[in-house]
Design a binder for these strands. Structure first.
Lengths: 237, 237, 237, 237
DNA sequence: CATGAATGAGCCTTCATTCAT
DNA sequence: GATGAATGAAGGCTCATTCAT
């Protein structure tokens, strides 16, 4: 499994060794599941191979997960609470909803470009279990509502807007992650522009927002307990 | 498997009993595969169950399809050459690309509303095998290009526009087919509006086009009386 | 299937086109079976593939052979009555039993060198059905008896001698046909020498006989009916 | 499966119940495979039947052997390390290569006489997998080389000699095991005589060596009383 | 006679899951 | 809590054979 870009990678590896043994074993199993999901696809991953990659036995897997589906769910939760949350946090300080939307779209496109394996994993897991998609959806929905309140967007219905945003961007991300876009950044910008236009923005402004460079990742506030961080993230939306 | 609306159903069921034996069996197997795909999902469908539903043995299946994937392909081709072609033909006489695009989007949304099972089947098969999606994609792409030539659309790139159209509409269709849209028609209209806006149309015109009623299905082949058919088409909406 | 050396090839192809239709179809099936046996091995050959190679259907195969095993038997008979008989005839005029034995051993070794595929086929068919091996065995046995009568050989028992001759030469032939003998002719000569020594011959004379070049194949007496020929061949033994 | 003669049987059955569970199951599977190989032939043996005979499910078989061929290999190794090794050890103290060769030939002939089933099994397994044959071959080859060094044998090539020894004796053993030799011992002696003559020995000495009675099996490991064992060995002949 | 579609038993293999240790 | 052997229900696929046409 290729490494994630640095600012995301650091989010994934916080304090595994500090966990109590039970949690540590569980975390190792999730890591192994991620590897196997990536290598074989979520549908083709077998529990025996996950156990083997984790250096454990199938029995151990069943001490932590009652069923195969629970593993997929756990991976979904894990991705949501590390990778996706980290991305969401990365533009917590941006207050313009249109800008936030543009960043959100482009950040996942960027991930598809630099870490296609992780992106395909997210897409697969989203498809297999609802929780991960819902998680991302929630973040997106609050930006959409904010944009409507700020009169940056004008849409006939929230649901239609969500279908536009999610459907179109997922298509773009998939294309990029599969290496089907010769110039991934150009494709991402173009798709983001079309989405913003669809949301009711002026075409020129849509293009400008979509073209703006992504903000840097902020440093992880190192020692703070995880509970505090997720609480503040929730408040920020 | 619930019946399709009349104008589509008649396209699917033409003259099975007139086929030579081999083709007839093959057609029966494809029908059985469609049932099982719908009931269990394409990924979970087993050849044994397809055979059983078709009233045959697994050996017979393998006389017609060398592998499981060939069945999926055959179903894809069958859907493309009956269902999808029929839909495409239904607005062959429309010359305004924007109108064509609106009809295409809304026609599949309509299908999702009146035949959610068939729609979910198409979505699944599209996901499993490339041929069906490509088929629809080609049709859509030529409308897009026509719209650009006619200066109805203005898009930064064809690929981005296709991701917008396909991604967003697929999301809308899925929502409708799953029964998640309280007012399916309103949702379809809203999504189509957003897509057309994204393609560069004036918001008001986008809304107008998306709201316009779908044209009736044209008569298929000669002998049948036209009146009956258009009546049933009207009823289906 | 690589061609046989000329003098044998001509024996295989006599008058197929002259046969009545039923016999011609049967002959074609046997040819197809030989091809498939060679390509896949006798055990792995399927009737469907034989039929396909013959350009026929499985039903036709069963019009000529009641069971799979009958095909193997038919191939065995066919090999015996063409290939092997032709080899046996090739030294019909030799009267010294020791010389005949040497020629027999070396001729099959030669076949293994120049036509390993045919040889491996013979070995496989011999193993699968008794008739072919028995056929060759008969020819060999009469030479052995002649040698004993001529006091060229001295053996404690006919059976032991046959096991010596057949077992040892089969091992040598297999080695040659598999390409495991760097110098096939030297290996053939050496093995033949040891066998002749085992049969009681003077070591030096054994070596001389085993080293002597093989006689040329005699021309096929073209127009003579097959019945006459096999009769005379039988008398010659 | 008929029992082996006592001195061999005791080698096969040492301490199964003392093995750790995994090894015990594996041993049971190998025993079951041997039974099925004997009953149906190696080529026709199915994993399902092996599992059933072992009182297990097919899944269990695959916990121990990744593929059908691995079972054959395991049986080959098992036969080599018990049956064949025991035979080889039985004349470890004989130093004359010619005598060793005679004993080796005759010991396997004896096995064919008293345990035709086991012998046919060995022949089949040897044919299916190289390891068992190579094992025996190595032992035989060192005797051959020793005999050449001791100037008991004179052969044009090692390979030819090996083909003579193995080919001829395999033929004799097969005949005996199939019950085709009215007097198995006489046939064994005769064949061994011919082989030794082929290897360059004086006919009379060859006959003498081949006729000499086989040495008794030596005691296996310490504690068992020697008297019982030699008695049973004598009885077995 | 030939056709070839259909059969059905059977094979190898995989894998989620259980459970005694 | 971990182990890992065992399970058993499937699944995909092959193939000798039959039989109506």
């Amino acid at each position: 499994m290729p490494a994630l870009p640095a600012p995301l990678a650091e989010a994934l590896l916080t304090g595994h060794e500090r966990l109590p043994k039970r949690e540590r074993t569980r975390a190792q199993l999730i890591q192994a599941a991620i590897q196997v999901f990536s290598a074989r696809g979520v549908a083709q991953a077998s529990i025996q191979e996950i156990a083997q990659v984790a250096g454990m036995t199938t029995g151990t897997v069943y001490n932590h997960f009652a069923t195969r589906e629970e593993i997929v769910d756990a991976v979904a939760v894990w991705l949501a609470t590390t990778l996706c949350r980290r991305i969401d946090q990365s533009y917590a300080q941006v207050t313009d909803a249109a800008e936030r939307m543009a960043i959100g779209l482009r950040r996942y496109q960027w991930l598809a470009e630099v870490s296609p394996h992780w992106t395909l994993l997210i897409l697969q897991v989203s498809h297999a279990t609802p929780s991960l998609a819902e998680n991302i959806r929630d973040f997106c929905l609050s930006d959409l509502r904010m944009g409507v309140r700020q009169e940056r967007f004008a849409v006939p219905s929230e649901e239609a807007a969500m279908d536009l945003i999610f459907g179109a961007n997922q298509a773009a991300i998939t294309r990029i992650a599969l290496g089907l876009a010769p110039d991934p950044q150009a494709h991402g910008i173009a798709t983001a522009t079309l989405i913003l236009r669809g949301l009711g923005m002026d075409p020129e402004e849509a293009r400008t927002l979509a073209t703006r460079p992504l903000p840097e990742f902020t440093a992880l506030s190192a020692p703070a307990p995880a509970a505090r961080r997720s609480a503040s993230a929730r408040r920020a939306r």
